[in-house]
Design a protein around this nucleic acid. Sequence first.
DNA 1: CTCCGATTGGACTATCCAGTCCAGTCCTAC
DNA 2: GTAGGACTGGACTGGATAGTCCAATCGGAG
Lengths: 221, 221
Amino acid sequence: MDGPERPRRLAGSTTRGRTTRDRVLTAAAGLVHARGVERTTLDDVRAATGVSKSQLYHYFDGKADLVHAVVARHAETVLAAQQPELDAIDSFAGLARWRDKLVGLQEQHGCALGCPLGSLVADLAGDDELGRLALVSAFAAWQGRLRHGLEVMRDHGELAESADPEALALGLLTAIQGGLLLAHATRSVRPLRVALDMAIDGLRARAPALTAAGPGAAGRC
Amino acid sequence: MDGPERPRRLAGSTTRGRTTRDRVLTAAAGLVHARGVERTTLDDVRAATGVSKSQLYHYFDGKADLVHAVVARHAETVLAAQQPELDAIDSFAGLARWRDKLVGLQEQHGCALGCPLGSLVADLAGDDELGRLALVSAFAAWQGRLRHGLEVMRDHGELAESADPEALALGLLTAIQGGLLLAHATRSVRPLRVALDMAIDGLRARAPALTAAGPGAAGRC
DNA sequence: CTCCGATTGGACTATCCAGTCCAGTCCTAC
DNA sequence: GTAGGACTGGACTGGATAGTCCAATCGGAG
């Protein structure tokens, strides 16, 4: 009806376009992390990137679409920030190194920021179903990495055969989220450290009986 | 300079006024819980209470003040909702009853809501210092109740003398918050149950050696 | 070179929202 | 009963914000 199908180029198909889109996304991710979805306006993004309003709508289908892209970006950066410790979990010692990495990351900005993903739950879970699902899959990916580490630990005999890496990984993830939430509120890393230590103690309870060292080997603060 | 000091009546000093103020606060608390601070407008509150704009400003010094009052109200209702189980914690069995209460509360609304306090952290911690401090003191009160229960447990010999009730209570609180956050995001109570079970397992690791039962006595889901 | 679509700039609109204002009504102390 | 202050109603304002529109420019394929 409106002409033959031409090979349609997508918005951002050129190198320059992709660069611009990426710059917008990076700036938006930073703003959303610092201020949340509602307090980040498209004009803030525009100002931070020196890009015009129409470009925002050229690359994204409105604010909701931009936010979804931000969630996907956060999902990547959060995992990347924990490397290489996250993927190197293979023992309680490795777990401790990963815990220290998380605590160190939070200390870097004086606990002024929450978890890029966790902070968005209250904003999105209520009325942005697509956003909520994006968060769920981001959390699932994170949990998957942890689960893998725990499986390695179990195979190495550091966890009992009966241990359920999937559930334990979920427990670790909740400890991170709860710890970061209270760290953000109190502006202190202590809740994060305590949460992770307590969860890891819960893990130690799943160590084979003979190996089970006393709790607190990691040093409570 | 402007006349002798009269016994100044405060806004809401009459019975009727106090009733109205309370009705506004209750409605605002519900709306803020469901939608968050930014997505709750004063007009929403006005519509939900049948009250006029000027009454809102008569009883509160603007939106920020109303939100602070909502935080204080939430601080009360959250603790009240956990009664009587919260203040009855005196053993691992009591802890399990309290955990079931929390899980049951979350199930009541199908995990559609987050923690009334936790959900506000991302909204307030960034740029409302008074709101942030109100949250911190609400969390402190909650932690205090938990700490008291753990002290009772320690005195009853269910926790080792070396156990630190303050830190362990903080760990429990982070488990709740992380569990509720992921429960809200995934619309499933499982993260909450797993988080609490894992934290309680961490607590069991602090039980005196002889009494220490194996982990998972509470039944992992 | 020349064309065409991708890309860009920025003005414009419609809506929403916190906060203001003032006139009218109700309650209570005297 | 009555005067004064507490309480109430609702219109109005200024500013911010998401989204629209169209003309101008750029850049690569033929």
